[in-house]
């Protein structure tokens, strides 16, 4: 299993050339200035932004190809994203948030519930199960977002600045949680960060954009 992106990505007039292949088990760190297109790369892989040119394929299946006019919608790609601004669903509880991806993939309610609890346990957030997503602290929300992303066992895990919204103290703690999650993760993982320490400790190799 490998993910490969060859082509140009971008929104509007700003375009960036990309040529990268990531194997399963790897954690590709992505560094670069602000506004260089790190987030756009994530969104392109997830299927929120289309490629401008070139193609994007995973495990031999083309997800997006500008010349062949192929484009798979997000729910057809087995991706999961931890957004920089997290984007937890405010009207749902923590458990419902984590179950969301599982239920989207057609998993029964009971099974989704037990899996969700397990994943919350993995990020040491099981005590938050019945809280509303609205009232969580930065660190708590970050854990829930991580649990939500890995819950459905995606093939591709996209982490956009997963440690940015946290104060220094809990940052160390969460970094080790993240390291555990990533080392156990069987698929392709991409990690965007502007912090060199994150990249050296979590990523297997690093691509610098721009």
């Amino acid at each position: 299993m490998s993910l490969s992106v060859v082509g140009h990505i971008g929104k509007g007039t700003h375009t960036i050339p990309i040529d990268v292949t990531v194997e399963a088990g790897e954690v590709l760190g992505i560094a670069g200035r602000n506004g260089v297109g790190k987030t756009t790369l994530m969104e392109t892989i997830a299927g929120i932004v289309p490629l401008l040119s070139g193609s994007l394929s995973f495990d031999g299946v083309t997800w997006d190809d500008a010349s062949q006019k192929v484009w798979k919608s997000p729910e057809q790609r087995r991706c999961a994203v931890v957004f920089q601004d997290l984007r937890l669903f405010p009207h749902m509880s923590v458990l419902q948030n984590v179950m969301f991806g599982l239920r989207s993939r057609g998993i029964s309610k009971n099974e989704a519930q037990s899996t969700a609890r397990m994943k919350l346990d993995l990020v040491s957030a099981e005590h938050l199960v019945h809280r509303k997503a609205m009232g969580l602290s930065g660190g708590e929300a970050q854990r829930v977002a991580l649990a939500r992303a890995i819950a459905a066992e995606p093939d591709v895990l996209l982490l956009d600045e997963p440690l940015s919204a946290i104060d220094a103290g809990s940052r160390e703690q969460l970094r080790s949680v993240l390291a555990d999650v990533l080392s156990a993760f069987p698929g392709v993982a991409l990690l965007v960060s502007h912090d060199a320490k994150d990249l050296t400790s979590l990523a297997t190799r690093t691509l610098t954009l721009g």
């Binding site: 082509g7 960036i16 050339p17 040529d19």
Partner: peptide, 22 residues
């Protein structure tokens, strides 16, 4: 790992033909 040259040509927005689930 190599980088493609920055494209000079205007990239026109694509019209996506989406295949959707049932």
């Amino acid at each position: 790992m190599k980088l493609l040259p920055v494209s000079d040509t205007e990239v026109s927005p694509r019209i996506l033909k989406v295949s959707r689930g049932t």
